[in-house]
Computed example of a mutant assay.
Amino acid sequence: MLLLAGTSATSHTCPPPGEAEGRCIELTADRTLEVFEVQLSPGQPTTFDFDSDVQADGLTLENRERFKVAPGKRLITLVPSEMMRGEKPSTLTVCFADDAAPSCARFRLVIHPAVAERQVEIFRHKRPVNSVQAELKKTREEIVRLHAEIERLRAERDRPDGLTGLFASGMVDGKGIPSQSITKRITERESNTLIPVRVTTLRAPGRVAIGLSLENPEGAKPWTPQGAKLVGSKGEVLDATFWPAEPIPSGEQHRVWIEVMVPDVQTQGPFILKIWELDGQRTFVIGNVTFPALPVGSGL
């Protein structure tokens, strides 16, 4: 009984090609915009067999008056009339009765003069809506970060490299770039798997940077940075870029640079710096991160 219960809770999957008696389609939350093509033929029934309850009275079908429709809780049968012969494909949209994702499925009904797919099985891999929303939020944040990085690269594209570029951009004047060591001031989380050997912060007009010498303890798995951000005392979040995106092997110490564009003067801190690794399982977090002030007249 336990074995049967465990099997029933598992999502159905389509059999390998050639082993299914009819057509088989799998629906996932990341393919909500996909339209699946199904072949019908005038006078021949095609049955859509869903593994989740559908809103039988809520389906939408183009040219519905030219179909015989038998809607059910999990079975929907369509029979095109002769009037559909030679017509353009119609779209069928079926929505599910629960609140999980994917919420609907769309099919492009192609009319063939003689051959129809008699049965189409639809297996739905459900996900809670809040899970999908959290993933979309994370994706949007990543898109915003990438747009900011693109704009930064565009702004720097036409500038010369080296010292000339630094002076031309206004980031450096005769007084240089203010920097400070905050290694002894930072706070660390007990869950950190990296050791901050040296932490330096720098400031230039319009941006700040953090230089970290990070040690990955002997015996630990390699640690590869994937993303970083600064969090202010009021919860404000500043997206950060980092370099290099290279793994820190076990027992070795690497230098990692974090850079943040700052659109205003609210960057004295203290801030919390968060860096997460490639697979998202481990994070490195330090607090009490502050930045030096710019000389008077240097801009932000």
Rank of each mutant, 00 (worst) to 15 (best):
residue 148 A to M: 12
residue 62 E to S: 14
residue 69 V to R: 11
residue 39 Q to Y: 07
residue 281 Q to C: 02
residue 19 E to D: 13
residue 198 R to I: 00
residue 68 K to Y: 05
residue 56 A to L: 04
residue 161 D to T: 09
residue 247 P to M: 08
residue 29 A to P: 01
residue 244 P to A: 10
residue 12 H to W: 06
residue 19 E to G: 01
residue 262 V to Y: 00
residue 29 A to N: 07
residue 102 P to T: 10
residue 60 T to V: 10
residue 99 D to H: 10
residue 64 R to H: 10
residue 181 S to V: 07
residue 196 P to Y: 08
residue 260 V to N: 02
residue 152 R to G: 14
residue 43 G to E: 04
residue 22 G to E: 09
residue 12 H to D: 11
residue 73 K to W: 00
residue 28 T to F: 13
residue 235 G to M: 07
residue 49 D to R: 11
residue 43 G to Y: 03
residue 171 M to Q: 14
residue 105 A to T: 13
residue 285 V to W: 01
residue 83 M to F: 08
residue 261 M to A: 14
residue 203 R to W: 01
residue 163 L to M: 14
residue 291 F to Q: 10
residue 132 V to F: 05
residue 82 E to G: 06
residue 240 A to N: 03
residue 106 R to Y: 05
residue 2 L to W: 03
residue 130 N to M: 08
residue 185 R to H: 11
residue 151 E to C: 04
residue 171 M to Y: 10
residue 136 L to N: 13
residue 106 R to C: 06
residue 64 R to S: 13
residue 36 F to T: 10
residue 126 K to V: 14
residue 283 T to I: 09
residue 250 S to L: 04
residue 157 R to S: 13
residue 117 E to L: 11
residue 1 M to W: 14
residue 20 A to Y: 01
residue 142 E to F: 11
residue 224 T to D: 11
residue 79 V to Y: 08
residue 180 Q to D: 03
residue 233 S to N: 11
residue 105 A to E: 06
residue 149 E to W: 12
residue 118 R to C: 00
residue 220 A to K: 13
residue 5 A to S: 12
residue 14 C to D: 07
residue 11 S to P: 15
residue 59 L to D: 07
